[in-house]
Computed example of a mutant assay.
Amino acid sequence: MISIQNFAKTYNKKHIIKHSSFKIPQNQITFLMGENGAGKTTFIKCVTGLEKCEGEVTFTQGKDCFVVWDDTPFYQNLSGVDNLLILGDSKLTKKSDT
Rank of each mutant, 00 (worst) to 15 (best):
G88D: 01
G39Y: 07
T60P: 04
M33V: 10
K40P: 04
G80D: 06
S96L: 13
T93Q: 00
L78C: 07
G88N: 01
K94S: 02
G49A: 11
F74L: 15
H15T: 12
P73H: 02
I2M: 08
I29P: 01
V68Q: 07
L50R: 11
I2K: 06
G39S: 08
D64K: 15
F59M: 07
P73T: 01
G39A: 09
N6F: 04
I44K: 00
D64Y: 13
A38N: 00
F66G: 14
T30F: 08
G55P: 10
M1R: 11
E54N: 14
I2E: 03
D71T: 12
E56Q: 14
W69S: 12
S79P: 07
L85P: 00
T10N: 10
K14L: 06
L92C: 02
N6G: 11
L78H: 06
T58N: 10
E56H: 11
N27K: 13
K91G: 00
E35F: 02
I4L: 09
I2W: 04
E56L: 13
K63D: 04
L92E: 00
M1H: 08
F43P: 03
G49V: 11
V67H: 10
D71C: 08
K14C: 02
N83Q: 03
P25M: 05
D89K: 13
P73G: 01
F22C: 13
K95Y: 14
T93G: 00
K18Y: 07
I86S: 00
K52L: 10
K95S: 15
S90E: 05
K94M: 01
F22P: 01
K91D: 02
W69Y: 13
K40G: 05
L92P: 00
Q76E: 10
M33Y: 06
H15S: 11
F22D: 08
S21Q: 13
G62S: 10
T72K: 05
S20G: 06
L87W: 00
L92G: 01
K63R: 14
V67L: 14
Q76P: 09
T10F: 10
G88W: 01
L78E: 10
N6V: 05
E56N: 13
D70R: 12
Y11V: 07
K40W: 05
K94N: 03
M1N: 09
K18R: 14
D97R: 12
K95L: 15
P25Q: 06
F59T: 07
T93N: 01
Q5L: 12
G80W: 03
K23G: 07
K91H: 06
P25L: 05
Y75T: 04
E54C: 12
F22Y: 13
I4P: 01
K94Y: 02
C65A: 11
D82E: 15
T41I: 09
T42K: 01
N6S: 15
A38S: 13
L84I: 03
G39M: 09
